[in-house]
């Protein structure tokens, strides 16, 4: 079964929108809001595009808006991955 980890998310974040000066993605970012990490709504759309490209998981725009923290994003993407295999 494929799973999607926080490290997978970190890698995509780095690739999609880069890292803002003063932000350490390797710290415990699980419950820090994306906006605090320097990822605005457009950065999250770019992230969603890369998730779709790499994992085949489509994230509707409305769901992207609800993804406010890395924890919520990882859980959402894992649910989709599991669902896709049922």
């Amino acid at each position: 079964m494929s799973t999607f980890s926080l490290d997978d998310l970190r890698e995509i974040m780095r690739q999609s929108a880069g890292v803002e000066a003063g932000v350490d993605l390797d710290a415990d970012i699980t419950d820090i809001e994306f906006i605090e990490l320097g990822y605005d709504s457009l950065a999250l759309l770019e992230l969603a595009i890369q998730v779709k490209r790499k994992y085949g998981v489509s994230i509707p725009d409305d769901d992207v808006v609800d993804m406010t923290t890395p924890r919520i994003a990882v859980e959402y993407i894992n649910r989709q991955l599991v669902g896709a295999e049922v």
Partner: peptide, 10 residues
């Protein structure tokens, strides 16, 4: 289409 980046919008 899925390869077009979001930043193309701006």
């Amino acid at each position: 289409p899925s390869w077009v980046g979001a930043y193309q919008s701006i």
